[in-house]
Structures are given as structure tokens and as C-alpha cells.
Amino acid sequence: MPNIVVLVKQVPDTYSERKLASADHTLDRASADAVLDEINERAVEEALQIKEAQGGEVTVLTVGPERATDAIRKALSMGADKAVHVSDESLHGADIIQTAKVLAKAIGTVEGYDLIIAGNESTDGVGGAIPAMLAELLGLPQLTHARKVEIDGTSVKVERETDAGRTFLEAALPAVISVGEKINDPRYPSFKGIMAAKKKPVTTLTIADLGIDASEVGLANAASQVLESAPKPPRAAGQQITDEGDGGSKIAEYLVSQKLI
């Protein structure tokens, strides 16, 4: 009966226009629709599949501003049992290391966890380092980039996918795993799940509750600073060529000019 903690994050919808705030180069949360990151839906799905097969409990954990409750509710409506939400103004602009420290402390509030599941990287920061840092901070084995996960009482086996090939890993529980795109297809919540989510317990914590001082976190205390940022240049309009019987050779000429053929 594994006790599973799933890390979730609310991110700007990849379909909407994503920007950084001009004042401090942090994420402009107001400019885009906020959603539960898709890779986290897969992490939740994996936890739910394990729970459905073996029992246990699924806790979702997020660090984020107040409106991250929407992302929590989505995970709960999919079927997770409860949630921990670390919300604190002083975390604005926190870097990856600070976030990992906060997550590690928050995981400490979940009694008797066996497995921590994260997505391999978020679609906003794309740091991809949290699972490894967290494992380091908690002194746990890390089995990252999983495309398949098997739990067996006291151990976890993971099939890892890399560009070079597949690696088969095994570790004793408790452990930290991160999942990739191919792990599963996340379910849709059901309306019953949506109704049930409202009644599930959500514990909201500040960093003081976790024994962290405000001077250790936030933009001012981050290990690195964003000095400047510029939006991606708009895509240039394509070149249109009218086919006057020589369309084929025009395409070939273009490909040659781009050194593609």
C-alpha cells in the first residue's frame, strides 16, 4: 500500500501567450491562462494507477501562489486523495534550488511516504533539475525520466528512456522518480471526481510553517538573476512563389540555398 506524493505545478497554458514581467523578469502570471502542467497530469495518472492496483494514498504537493489551488483541484478531481499547498509571498522569484528545499521540507510533513513522483521538467521554467535536487536533499535514490514504473513492496523498477537508449533501474523505497511524456495517457476527471475534489483535504502551509526563513528564499536571494529578457522575434512571413511550371526547381533551389540538399 504505497503512500505516494506527486509534485504538481501550475504553469501558463502553452497555448496562450507566455511572457515575463517587465519589472523583474519573473513569470507574468496574469498574462496567460494557468493550467496544471501536462507532465504533472501524467505523474498524477501514474500514482493513481499504482493506487488502483495496490491501494495506498496519493498526496499532491505544490508550491505556488494562491491561484495554484486550481491546479490542485484538477489533480484531486482526477482522483488524488489530498493535497499540500505551500503558498507564501516571499517565494516570488524563487530559483530551482530554493524550490527544491521548500519541496523537501513540505514532503517531510507527509507521514510515511514511499514514493515521490514528479514530471521530468515543467513547460514554463524547463529546468528539469527538481527531481534530482530533491532526491539529493532527501537522501533518496533518484530514478528519472521513466517511461515505465513498477512497484514491488519495498522496491521500485524504472525503465528510463534517453537519446542513447533505454536503461533499467532499480532502487529501494522510498525513492524519487520523474516521468516522461511516454509514461501514460492521463485520464480526464469525471464530474463525480470534480464534486468529490471539493471535499478533499488541502493543507496550506507558509514557509514559516516549514521552518524556512524569508531571508533564504525569493528573488533577492536566488543563486542566479535574470538581467535582461526579450520576447522571441515574431516568425517572419513565409516566401510565396507562384508555380509557373518551374515550381519543382524553385523548391530545389531553395533547399540548396539552405544547404538542405
Binding site: 478531481s77 480526464y188 471539493k198
Partner: peptide, 14 residues
């Protein structure tokens, strides 16, 4: 209410 918002979000997703 938020239930209705989540329900509409589910419908849009599907």
C-alpha cells in the same frame, strides 16, 4: 461556482 467552472473546463478539454 468552482464546480461549474471545473465542469466547463472538463467539457472544453474533452
Amino acid at each position: 461556482d468552482t464546480e461549474a467552472e471545473d465542469l466547463i473546463a472538463l467539457a472544453r478539454d474533452i
